[in-house]
Simulated scan of single mutants.
Amino acid sequence: MERKKFNWRQQRTNGEIAFDWFNVTLMAVICFITLYPIWYIIVNSLNEGADAMLGGIFWWPRKFTLDNYTAVFQNSGVIKAFGVTILRTVVGTVTNVLFTAMVAYPLSKDHLVGRKFYMAMGTVTMFFSGGLIPSFLLYKNMQLLDTFWVYIIPGLFNFFNLIIFVNFFREIPGALEESASIDGATDWTIFTRIILPLSKPVLATIALFTGVYHWNDYFAGVIFINNPNLQPIQTFLYRIVAETGSTQMMATAGNITRTTTSLSIKLATMVVTTLPIVCVYPFLQKYFVKGMMIGAVKE
């Protein structure tokens, strides 16, 4: 006797089918609302600035040109700002991950004296801070203002990242550390030779969190930096957008200023500054989800 194949589609009601279509339609609308502003900026940045001022450009460039991007890259300030951002992201990410991991490892041990007090004290800092003015005065007394290290030293430690590290370290079997101790390994050897190699998932997660923060941060450059040679690319973009015109940038563009405007250069600058992180994010998105799951269970 031939067995009939079960078709789950035949068991669905009209209400379930309508609900699925509603979900698909809703998600399509949300995706469009989210992505179209980005597409609009890209399209207008690829159009002649003078022509774009006439309006009516929504889907494709009417007069395609790369003059806006040429004007951006001919400005030496953009190149310097990119260099500062890349250096800040690399140094800040490496130091934050290593320093936070070193603090989290002993806090993951129940036998640490004062462990609960340290965790409670750190939890308070997640909800309350000294504020901008005390931070500014502190950095001033530490002689960090207008230096590259104002980007690095205040961001060496993050308690939220520490919680993720602690929960991951507590999942590593203690027998590995005990066997290493019996063989004469010190705590530092255990941490560097055993714990860190086994912690690649959480290291990648925290590195991604920290790297995105350093790349996107503009506030520190606005408040704590006066030297234009030390401002990151996001601060450079902020100042370009905040200004009523981009005369300084357009002056460096030479003869192409006839087809560019302050608005078109601003749009091109936005694309240039956001494109690297947008391209990297889809490949690393899984680490965001995994990082949230690692730190989902708090103590």
Rank of each mutant, 00 (worst) to 15 (best):
I164V: 14
K266P: 04
G174L: 10
K290A: 15
I206M: 05
I182H: 00
Q10V: 15
V84I: 11
L137Y: 06
R258H: 07
V212T: 05
Q231Y: 06
L107R: 05
N141A: 11
Q234E: 11
T100Y: 02
D183H: 09
G49W: 10
V278R: 03
G83C: 03
L237V: 04
V150P: 02
F6T: 13
V24H: 10
T273L: 07
I164L: 08
V202D: 01
I233N: 04
R12T: 13
D187I: 12
I195S: 06
F283Q: 05
V94M: 01
P154C: 08
I240G: 06
S246R: 05
L107Q: 06
R12I: 05
L46P: 02
E177K: 02
Y151M: 05
S264L: 03
E2I: 15
M292Q: 13
L137W: 03
L263W: 07
T205W: 04
F159E: 07
G15F: 05
T210P: 00
G83P: 03
F99Q: 08
D217Y: 06
T85W: 04
A101W: 00
C279R: 02
I42V: 15
S179H: 03
V150K: 03
V297A: 11
Y218I: 07
V166Q: 12
M293E: 14
R115K: 14
N14I: 13
V241E: 07
K290Q: 15
V280Q: 01
R88F: 01
P106E: 09
I33K: 06
N141E: 13
I182Y: 02
V271D: 04
F159Q: 09
T70N: 10
V72T: 07
I57C: 10
P61A: 03
G122A: 11
F82W: 06
E243F: 02
T95G: 00
L176V: 10
R9Q: 13
E299D: 13
Y218M: 11
K200E: 09
P173I: 09
T244M: 11
V166P: 00
Y213S: 14
C31I: 10
Q231T: 15
P61S: 08
F168Q: 05
A50D: 14
R12C: 09
P37M: 05
G184Y: 07
N216I: 08
T252I: 05
S181H: 11
K109I: 07
W149K: 07
A185Y: 10
T189F: 06
T85F: 02
R258A: 15
T65V: 09
Y40Q: 13
T192H: 09
P232C: 07
E243H: 09
L138W: 02
A50F: 08
Q10C: 10
R3F: 13
W59Y: 15
R193A: 10
K80P: 01
T93L: 00
M126P: 02
M249Q: 12
F148E: 08
P106M: 04
F219S: 08
G92M: 07
D146Q: 08
P276W: 03
T257R: 12
W215N: 02
L112P: 07
K63R: 15
W60R: 10
F19M: 06
A101P: 03
K140H: 10
F99A: 14
H111L: 12
I294S: 11
A175L: 05
T244N: 14
F169G: 08
R62F: 09
I206W: 00
P106H: 09
P197F: 11
V84D: 04
I133P: 03
Q74G: 14
D217V: 03
P282S: 12
M250W: 02
V91E: 01
N141R: 10
Q143G: 04
M293N: 13
F32I: 09
V166K: 14
